[in-house]
C-alpha cells in the first residue's frame, strides 16, 4: 500500500517533476545533526540544523549560510 498523505498541498505540487535535487547532505558537525550543501572539497554551507536544543541555534558559527570546513 502506498503512503497515505494527509495534507492540504495539491499532490501535483508535491510530486512535481523537473526539479533539480540540491547538492544536500546530512552530517553531524560539532555534535549537531545538520543539513549542509556541498560547496567545494571540504567546504560545506549550512542549510539547517536538526537540533532540538535552542542553544545550538544561537551559535554564530552554525548560522544557516555559514561555511564550515570538515
Amino acid at each position: 500500500m502506498d503512503d497515505v498523505l494527509y495534507t492540504i498541498m495539491p499532490i501535483s505540487t508535491i510530486f512535481e517533476e523537473d526539479t533539480k535535487p540540491g547538492n544536500y547532505q546530512e552530517i553531524i558537525y560539532d555534535g549537531i545533526q545538520m543539513q549542509v550543501e556541498h560547496i567545494h572539497l571540504n567546504k560545506f554551507k549550512i542549510i539547517r540544523l536538526y537540533s532540538t536544543d535552542p542553544a545550538d541555534y544561537l551559535k554564530t558559527y552554525l548560522q544557516p549560510g555559514e561555511i564550515i570546513n570538515i
Binding site: T7, K20, Y24
Partner: peptide
C-alpha cells in the same frame, strides 16, 4: 547557556516512508 527546555519544530511536509521530491 543550557536550556532545560528543548524545542522541536515541525515544518513543511511531514515526510514518511518515501522521500519527497526536493
Amino acid at each position: 547557556y543550557k536550556s532545560n527546555i528543548h524545542c522541536m519544530t515541525i515544518i513543511g511536509q511531514v515526510e514518511g516512508h518515501t522521500i519527497l521530491p526536493p
